[in-house]
C-alpha cells in the first residue's frame, strides 16, 4: 500500500492505495466518483477520460500512485453550483445523449478543448473527439452540440 496526496475537483485527499490500482478505480471506488466510466479498460474508448493536471488522459491507463501530488478533474467537478454545465446543456439540447455511458468522457474531452481554445476549428473538434467511441448516437448530434456551443 502507498500513501498519495491528490487534489480531485479542487478538494485535497490523502489516500492509501495499492500500487496496482488504476486512477479510474481510485476515483470510483475510493472517492465514490462514479461519473467516469470503464468501457474497455484498454485506452480505446474514452469513457474514463479525466483531466490530469489540466490535460485529458485515459484514467484506466494511469495508476493512482502516478497521480500523487497531482490535480485531477472529473465530470463531477465540472458542474456549476446549481448542478448544470454549458457543455452538458448543449448535449441535452441536441439529443447528443442516449444511453449516456460515453457522455462523461465526451464532455471531459470538450472541456479540455475549450480550455485550450475558445474558438476551436472543425479540425480541433475532430481531434478532441477522435478517441471517443459512442455506440448509440452516431456522433452527428454530439458534433452538432459542440458546434452550437462554440458559435
Amino acid at each position: 500500500m502507498q500513501e498519495i496526496n491528490i487534489t480531485v475537483n479542487s478538494k485535497e485527499y490523502t489516500l492509501t492505495v495499492p500500487p496496482y490500482m488504476s486512477l479510474l478505480e481510485m476515483l470510483r471506488e475510493k472517492l465514490n466518483l462514479t461519473g467516469s466510466k470503464e468501457g474497455c479498460g484498454n485506452g480505446e474508448c474514452g469513457a474514463c477520460t479525466v483531466l490530469f493536471d489540466g490535460e485529458p488522459v485515459r484514467s484506466c491507463l494511469v495508476l493512482a500512485v502516478e497521480a500523487d501530488k497531482s490535480e485531477v478533474t472529473t465530470i463531477e467537478g465540472l458542474s456549476n453550483p446549481d448542478g448544470t454545465n454549458p457543455i452538458q446543456e448543449a448535449f441535452i439540447a441536441e439529443d447528443a445523449v442516449q444511453c449516456g455511458y460515453c457522455t462523461p468522457g465526451f464532455v471531459m474531452a470538450v472541456q479540455a478543448l475549450l480550455n485550450r481554445t475558445s474558438e476551436p476549428t472543425d479540425e480541433d473538434i475532430k481531434e478532441a473527439l477522435g478517441g471517443h467511441l459512442c455506440r448509440c448516437t452516431g456522433y452527428e448530434a454530439i458534433y452538432r452540440a459542440i458546434k452550437k456551443l462554440v458559435k
Binding site: G43, G46, T49, F52, E55, P56, V57, R58, L61, V62, A109, A112, E127, A128, G130, G131, H132
Partner: peptide, 9 residues
C-alpha cells in the same frame, strides 16, 4: 498517433 488522450501520456 492514437488519440489526444493517449498522445498526452
Amino acid at each position: 498517433f492514437g488519440c489526444l488522450e493517449i498522445r498526452n501520456r
